[in-house]
Design a protein around this nucleic acid. Structure first.
Length: 151
DNA sequence: GCTGAGCGG
């Protein structure tokens, strides 16, 4: 008899505890991850500087900067073999970047150190080594290395 | 002839 009353009392003591126990801390889960970011599986590592070469890529040029201006600016740090400001064929205006070729790698390095992040015609230019472009040498033999004229 | 990241004639 008495047990019946006690059980009914305990049941009533449950009250509304079920809803209050559900708590999720978003910040807590972030802190648990701590110092470990997932590296992106997509491999697109663009190395900012290219390998040393006498060919220099100059960006950030002013629209008013011409090939002569580029050569004059870079000639102060080395012998410039060739300088060219890339211009659009349609309009003929500068694209804002150009290429400078030095006689030696030392001059190219000095040119970069001397003209990189410097002002030219009011614009900060950036000089770095140009990338090797896919320029295939125009060979008359269709590029077949099997060409053996003599045996 | 200019918007202003970028790699050419």
């Amino acid at each position: 008899m008495a047990m019946t009353m006690m059980r009914s009392a305990m049941s009533s003591s449950q009250k509304k505890c079920g809803v209050g126990g559900l708590l999720i801390n978003k910040e807590g889960s972030r802190l648990f991850s701590g110092f470990s970011f997932t590296p992106p599986p997509s491999s697109t590592p663009p190395p900012p500087p290219a390998e040393p070469s006498t060919n220099l890529f100059v960006s950030g040029l002013s629209k008013r900067t011409t090939t002569e201006g580029l050569r004059e600016a870079f000639a102060k740090f080395g012998q410039v073999i060739d300088a060219r400001v890339v211009t659009d064929r349609n309009s003929g205006y500068s694209k804002g970047f150009g290429f400078v070729r030095y006689a030696t790698l030392e001059d190219a390095a000095k040119g970069i150190e001397g003209m990189d992040a410097k002002y030219l015609d009011g614009w900060v230019i950036f000089a770095e080594y140009a990338r090797p472009r896919p320029q295939q040498p125009p060979q008359q033999y269709t590029g077949s290395p099997m060409s053996s004229p003599r045996y």
